[in-house]
């Protein structure tokens, strides 16, 4: 075991009670939680979309607000999954010691982490779904193809939750998360085609952006919301699945080393 921290995760199916625990907490705070997931991105989207959009010609053949709506769903998914895997998971691991309590039961750390991973992705799905309903009501998406964005959101949530759990495993305190946001999440948000098409960027930045999971999520979600079948579906799905899988293996190894030593 000592040299086996990074053995493959063995999630099994017993992670479900961990997911249910988080769901029960969420249910008690559902309304403020949904408002928090919804209000901020919608204010930006509507403000920038109609305000800035009025100054712009069409972007990639659609009104700017429609272009931005698709980016907003993906960005909100990323934020929701990241916050849950960083701040909320860290609280449960380090502050409330909820994970320690669970580890005294027949569940293993792999079960706890799988429960947290799927929970963070579920929460990001709820956040994305809430925004989808609002922008749908505003007539900014094309049904029914837009419904396919839901599995994309869930997969995006898994990828960002898994990456977030790596950071959680390494964090000495909450302050550490600021590095992840300012050095990784925020730059990614700007170069992945959320606010403007990536072909506006210098070639070198575009080359980097092509590797970022958020860019792949955007390239899947935007066409679906605008009523088109995305190009290169296989490539984008593969990137997201690989990022989720590899990140989760690393996160599991690091967390085992932290908690089971």
């Amino acid at each position: 075991m000592r040299h086996g921290w990074f053995a493959l995760p063995r999630p099994g199916l017993r992670w479900l009670p961990v997911w249910r625990r988080n769901f029960l907490v969420w249910r008690k705070l559902a309304i403020p939680s949904i408002m928090g997931n919804l209000a901020d991105p919608l204010i930006y989207m509507l403000g920038l979309g109609y305000g800035l959009g009025g100054l712009l010609p069409q972007v990639q053949g659609v009104d700017y607000v429609r272009f931005l709506a698709a980016g907003t769903i993906v960005a909100s998914t990323m934020n929701a999954a990241t916050f849950e895997a960083l701040y909320s998971a860290f609280s449960r691991m380090h502050v409330q010691k909820t994970w320690d309590a669970i580890l005294n039961t027949p569940l293993s750390l792999d079960h706890v982490l799988t429960g947290e991973l799927v929970w963070a992705a579920s929460k990001s799905l709820l956040a994305g779904l809430a925004i989808l309903l609002v922008i749908g009501a505003l007539g900014l998406v094309s049904w029914p193809l837009a419904l396919w964005v839901l599995p994309v959101i869930f997969l995006t949530g898994l990828a960002f939750a898994a990456m977030g759990l790596i950071v959680c495993a390494l964090a000495p305190s909450y302050d550490f998360f600021m590095y992840y946001f300012t050095l990784f999440i925020t730059p990614m948000l700007l170069v992945s085609g959320v606010f403007f098409p990536t072909d506006q960027l210098p070639a070198m930045v575009q080359a980097v952006a092509a590797w970022l999971p958020l860019a792949h999520a955007v390239q899947l979600a935007r066409p679906l919301l605008l009523g088109r079948i995305p190009d290169d579906i296989g490539l984008h799905l593969t990137v997201l699945v690989v990022v989720a899988g590899v990140s989760f293996c690393i996160a599991t190894g690091l967390t085992r080393r932290r908690l089971l030593k």
Partner: peptide
């Protein structure tokens, strides 16, 4: 551990739950 109960040194009850919810959620882990 299915046959074992643990009272840890520091309380790690779930602060978001009531007493009975704490017991319910914990029982599900078993």
């Amino acid at each position: 551990r299915t046959r074992v109960g643990v009272v840890p040194q520091f309380d790690n009850l779930d602060p978001d739950f009531t007493s009975s919810e704490n017991l319910l959620v914990y029982g599900r882990y078993f």
